[in-house]
Design a protein around this nucleic acid. Structure first.
Lengths: 224, 224, 224, 224
DNA sequence: ATTTAAGCGAGACGGTACGTCTGGTCTTTAT
DNA sequence: ATAAAGACCAGACGTACCGTCTCGCTTAAAT
């Protein structure tokens, strides 16, 4: 007797044929992660994953279009809650804690994958989109909550665009991570957040009168 | 140490054997750039470069260790002063102008190569180092000058680390460039610089008394 | 009460579970034949057979050890009496008619399968044996009857080994069929049989005296 | 000064780049033969050939379209004059000797390849054509010479088509070789040739009067 | 009526070969 | 000496097919 033709996935799908082997799936993801701990994504081959997972290459390519996607899945599965989303009562402190936690993660073996994904995305726009969709936006949503709290509490200038806030806080770290200039550690993270919150501008500085002085500040009007 | 025939051919052309090397080299660089306008670095093959340049693959590999390095040379040769280093009298304005100019460049066909290099560097640390050495540090040196002027003039808080300033200004744009979230245009650039200079913190906000209040601001001391 | 363990199929088997689906069986054979009309055995896949027959691949492999055997069954089922075994009163005429009929069949879509089986057999000795057992020997038995009649009637030299007679008559056609040199049609068939019956030797030819003259003719004595 | 554009390979070709490695070529052919001594063509893989020959797979596929063609080349190179073309003064004896020699070869490890090629040809018409062109026709040309001599000498009935003669002599052996029914050895070969030359027909047999008697013998008129 | 032993369709799986491709090296002849 | 031509090696790629296995369902004999 066939039942749920209407609700695609009500209760239990119970499809006809042999079910997808969860052992195979998790073996693939696990093997992928293990290999990625030692080699860059580019150097890890589909064959190696298959061999290590005790799985056929065909099985990999049945479920994933290419090894990058396997790695992305492995990454997402492997990083369950490894970066905190603190709520200390102070947005600045929240961001500081979060950036420290995130930096610690990104400099770990697993976290280094972040860079590999960005790299892979540069020659595969579809993959980059997937990566944004499935990883980046989730992270940003969490961070946006912290920003929102700061704005609501009156800590953060509401004039500054939320997206820019996020990029201001995370961009520098990610830049350092990718380009490898500049160190990454707790105190750098603290300094970055402090700088972003405090701003560069010296408050007692008196601008000399200029033709276009101030124009830059005022201009910004709702593009995007 | 590399031989650098490229820039030092003024003195003595009179070498033994055949010396078509200069045409060959510039043909290689030119062909590389042309190919990179249409395809990512990964998809441009050494064979394609050789074919287009009318050159033997061996010639390429005689002078460069791999195709990424060819591309880097092509990039450096092709981008002579395409990003301005303005001096308006105001550091904020300087950075704004520069970021706008840089964004315009980075979103151009040639500029997109920046991302390709970062990507390539993720699986080739040696290349990443070269890229930093030969491109990134040059840019940063120029930018550091602008920062220095701002500090000297009293515009920019001297407490903020210069390297962090640079990453704060360029990091967000580069992050957007690489990850593809968020738009990049003049007004975004202006808003970013404005935000970095002004800071996120709302000046009239009164921190509630907290256990660790202020600690973050002061801490920064000899990390790692 | 169970009795018929000895007599494989005495009366009615009536085994316990669900019976073998005859629809599935005939659908498989039919689909196989249809596919083999368009592609060689090697290019017809088990998946394609299953799909076309509306049957599971497992069902195929439950009843047949591999697709060659399926094809052999399909072939045997499909060629019920498509080659005549004439009895005209003359062995030569019988063979001529039969060879014409057989050539017509072997050059037909279904008949071409003969070659596929021979081909398959070259890398699968077990299959070749089955093919001989189930097809070839049956054909040869029929042909041997024609030969026997000829011998009994005094038409055919009894000194010539029956097996050789058969191979002499069918071998040339099958060779042409497999190698594709030489045409196959009624008049070729007639000419072949005529040549086999008439022999190549010119009767009025006088052998020059030779050391070993005649030795070949006489020798043949009971080896193997 | 170069002149010989007309004479394809006059003197020395001296092409520009690196020449085709004869070591690689002969290593490939040798490795292929060695592997084919133990496994059927279907089971010998391109990878195995490459590995054994110490050669890259790309090199194989650069010069041959597929492994069957490699095997054909290996076969042709490996069988230099392994089958004699005797000239004893008697066509029947020539054919007997030749068939014995050929049977000995075809039942050897290398000779077994003949069957593999015929088999491969059944699913690859292009290959079959190559095989005919490069192997079969050469053999047949040699055999045709023997036939011609027999005809000229008056040994062989000139009424019998030469192609049919060849198929009559070789067809039965090849049929046995491929189908595996019937033994193959010197005495069988002798018996076959004797039967072909002597014909099946018993000379003292008196045909009963028949409607179409004799028609078959006369009909043959220039089809083909 | 219930149990139980098949058989079945669906389709995932491990294995393995295929033929292609690219990166980077090496060899030969030409300049 | 150095270039162009181009063959070469190593090895990953993604696809295809084979024959096996697992699942949930169906059928029919045996209980």
């Amino acid at each position: 007797m066939r039942k749920q033709q209407t609700l695609e996935h009500a209760e239990k799908p119970k499809k006809r044929g042999r079910h997808r082997s969860l052992e195979a799936k998790s073996a693939i993801l696990k093997a992928t992660l293990q290999l990625l701990e030692r080699e860059s994504l580019r150097k890890v081959t589909a064959d190696a994953i298959a061999r290590r997972a005790g799985v056929s290459k065909a099985t990999i390519y049945k479920w994933w279009p290419n090894k990058s996607m396997v790695a992305l899945d492995a990454y997402l599965a492997g990083m369950t809650d490894r970066v905190a989303t603190p709520d200390t009562g102070s947005a600045e402190e929240d961001f500081t804690e979060q950036l420290k936690s995130l930096t610690a993660f990104y400099t770990s073996t697993l976290g280094r994958l972040f860079c590999q994904f960005i790299a892979e995305g540069q020659s595969d726009p579809g993959f980059l989109a997937s990566f944004r969709e499935r990883f980046l936006y989730a992270r940003r949503d969490a961070a946006r909550v912290m920003w929102r709290r700061g704005v609501d509490r009156g800590e953060i200038r509401s004039a500054v665009d939320g997206e820019i806030v996020l990029d201001l806080i995370y961009g520098p770290t990610i830049f350092r991570l990718l380009a490898g200039h500049g160190s990454l550690n707790d105190s750098e993270s603290e300094a970055m957040v402090e700088a972003v919150f405090g701003g560069l501008r010296r408050l007692d500085y008196q601008r000399r009168p200029q033709k276009k002085a101030g124009s830059l500040v005022k201009r910004r009007n709702g593009q995007r």
